[in-house]
Design a protein around this nucleic acid. Structure first.
Lengths: 203, 203
DNA sequence: TCGTTTTAGTAATGGTCATTATAAAAAACT
DNA sequence: AGTTTTTTATAATGACCATTACTAAAACGA
């Protein structure tokens, strides 16, 4: 029934994702999107809806394609490995291919016009959901004795997210993978689960 | 010689600064600026130049008015107090008046269009200058025995900037002053200058 | 008081933005 | 082959963007 699409939906979405990742939601124009996807404007509208809908689809794809390390990390049995995989995974994605990518969840919209506010709120909600999942995982670790009984799980979850998002800003600004990896190593060395590791960090 | 200005230059610049702080460089329209300053478009152009020039002047004012804690901190004799004042000062500015401000240096532009790229580069340059100053201060501390001889000053400076910028993202997203203060306390407790403090953090 | 100088406000400018009518082209089904 | 359906590409739409002529008004010096 009818003519079929000449462009690949997934390829177009990947291209749009790359553009949003680089320039953020507001910084990306529809002309950018048509150029990078190779699809004329009406084609994008027909396939994905308007710019906001396209961004949300790109965001879903980003989660599915680049943020899987997060759920993998949460599944680690030892909390130290949870944190290690989260932070190492963050660095890997943020400096993918040696480029200065940062994180779409941060690049997308930090401060923006009123028009883009729904997108900013969406990104905040997703980051908060991630932090909540990590917080729950830390509480489990505390119950299991994998964290000290006095550990402030909410604070620690916020701390890890802070480091991850801070690295995202630095990565987008050009920080190298090695630079960020050193910071990750320091965070791990000062992680409150193992006294021996902290001793090593002191020297 | 001629009529004199009816509006206060400093007040207008402060108003523009507030707007840029909230919505970033690209997210702020000239209409926003005229509304919040109460000055008609040509008045702003005559007084400050175009939007980019106005942003740079607002950025200078931001440094002079809100970032003074940084040079104050660097002047502290003990490196622990340097870090403490940097992080506590960051939190104070980022949550000023209980609002979700974040940091102009981050909000201004993380990812943006090609047109705003010069502004993004300017912000990167300023953040790098801050990190370089901190790095130099840490090296001095290491020479003075205020940090372990093996301390990686470049990494530690990058780490502190990462935490500060990460908190800026979180503050803009609505994190409370208390939430951020708890994170700062953790960073200080794990700071590699004092073994006793690390012991306390373990419990 | 008169002319000069600078500001203020109105409104226009060209450009770009996201979004869509329109119409031609191509594939599928009858 | 003919009809229908869907996707293309061209190009138009109105809104908003930063920027600026232009005109009127106000304050200064003479």
């Amino acid at each position: 029934m009818g003519r079929h699409r000449e462009f690949d939906l997934d390829k177009a979405l990947d291209a749009a994702l790359t553009m949003f990742w680089q320039k953020g939601y507001e910084g990306t124009s529809f002309e950018d999107l048509t150029r990078v996807t190779g699809v004329a404007r009406p084609g994008l509208y027909a396939a994905f809806g308007n710019k906001e809908a396209l961004f949300r689809k790109a965001l879903d794809r980003y989660d599915a394609k680049y943020m899987t390390f997060m759920s993998d990390a949460l599944g680690e049995p030892k909390v130290y490995d949870v944190i290690r995989r989260i932070l190492e995974g963050s660095v890997k994605v943020q400096t993918l291919g040696g480029s200065s990518r940062g994180c779409l969840g941060v690049n997308g919209a930090v401060a923006c016009s009123d028009e883009a506010e729904p997108i900013r709120q969406e990104l905040i909600a997703r980051r908060n959901a991630t932090e909540a999942a990590l917080r729950a995982r830390l509480k489990r670790a505390r119950q299991e004795g994998d964290l000290p009984p006095s550990a402030d799980c909410a604070m620690l979850a916020g701390y890890v997210m802070t480091v991850s998002q801070g690295m995202a800003v630095q990565a987008k600004a050009g920080a190298s993978k090695a630079t960020l990896a050193a910071i990750v190593a320091h965070v791990l060395a000062t992680w409150p689960s193992s006294a021996s590791k902290r001793m090593r960090a002191a020297r």
